[in-house]
Design a protein around this nucleic acid. Sequence first.
DNA 1: ACCTGAACACCGTTCAAGT
DNA 2: ACCTGAACACCGTTCAAGT
Lengths: 231, 231
Amino acid sequence: MSKKDGSKDARRSPRRRDALSKRVIVQTAIDILDADGEEALTFRALAARLSTGAGALYHHVSNKDQLLAAAATNLVERVTGPAPSSDSSEATLRTLMLDVFDVIRAHPWLGAQLSRAPWQPADLLIFERIGELLAPLQIPDEMRFDVASAFMNHVLGAAAQQAAGTCIAPNLDRAAFLEKVTAGWTAHAGRDQLPFVHEIAPQLAHHDDRQQFATGVNLLLAGIAAATHPC
Amino acid sequence: MSKKDGSKDARRSPRRRDALSKRVIVQTAIDILDADGEEALTFRALAARLSTGAGALYHHVSNKDQLLAAAATNLVERVTGPAPSSDSSEATLRTLMLDVFDVIRAHPWLGAQLSRAPWQPADLLIFERIGELLAPLQIPDEMRFDVASAFMNHVLGAAAQQAAGTCIAPNLDRAAFLEKVTAGWTAHAGRDQLPFVHEIAPQLAHHDDRQQFATGVNLLLAGIAAATHPC
DNA sequence: ACCTGAACACCGTTCAAGT
DNA sequence: ACCTGAACACCGTTCAAGT
């Protein structure tokens, strides 16, 4: 019953020497996201890693949404870069789509972020490049927007799936995860309720996401060809 | 400085008369989600609406994720119903896709839910119907899964966009929202950085989401036709 | 068995106080 | 101007106590 004193034992930490900046904050956020996943990124954890207080971060980013958006933009800019080679733009578009897929797969939280807020700059950047590479493809003007949107939907769909895959089962290997998914299917409804799903299930194990994504891209490209000069 | 008594003034509420059930909990959750959006659904609000304690809900749903999944399944089942007419399955597939689009548009939180957890039963139901309606379309066996996945990506992409549209600007009308989006575009990068986006921007105002979605579906269908019997 | 509601363990965000 | 870290206003979830 002593120590009723006002002077706290713990003195304040010394002040940071090097200035904080949006750049280092965003980069550190990416590091945390990559290393420990989406749920590990809290302002407290981020502040601790940067040896500062949580409130300090708000001098450089206005809130968590903006921080995540900035992190996503940072990564996406790496694949929407200076751009085109001299390939036919159909091939370049295919390459862009696969580059986007690859960066999402390498950073699963990015998939969640892109599909959570599809109007954010990172998504716009992707959409922009898609539109640019579509330009030389002889698409009727009134269809350009719709076609670009279809490609974007393909990206967003794949993003959602990548995010979910690693979110549900962060530490399971691929086989175990798929095992779990198919088990869940059977649980919700018997084989007779979901015949197609059960027919497909065995293929999941030796199944290549990336190849599947590429097949979808080819389907869209074939659709354009068919629509623009039908036989 | 009186009333140091242990007996609290507020006595416990009387017990519910009618039993709680998963069914009424899920339906009430849907009501809240439809009326006031995703952020309005908390266990406290839900419990209050049902005149019970928050803890009671856990006797019927295991957690919030499962509750949202159940709500989504409930709505999706309405459009994946008993199924097919006698139409050609290409037309039936188109109809399914548009029905799914419509239910997502009518319940924007559903779009968020479907794309947040693409392995949940509600998504599987959609995937199942897609696969079934694809069956008669002469698709090589090894492509069936990939093609179904492309259609599913189209749904998930549209789901993400619908969710974002009403999440960012719940009370803005369409024109004001699009105004805001395009303003954000220009803010992030000048006209010269995003030429395609700025070219497209004016079209946004008088732009039909549903029609755009349908065009994407047609593109995929045309792609199938081209892939299965090229000219 | 089911319900009640306070308590717990977290969040993002704010803000007075320091430098 | 920027940083600090406690405080605030919320969450989802748990659990002892009631019926």
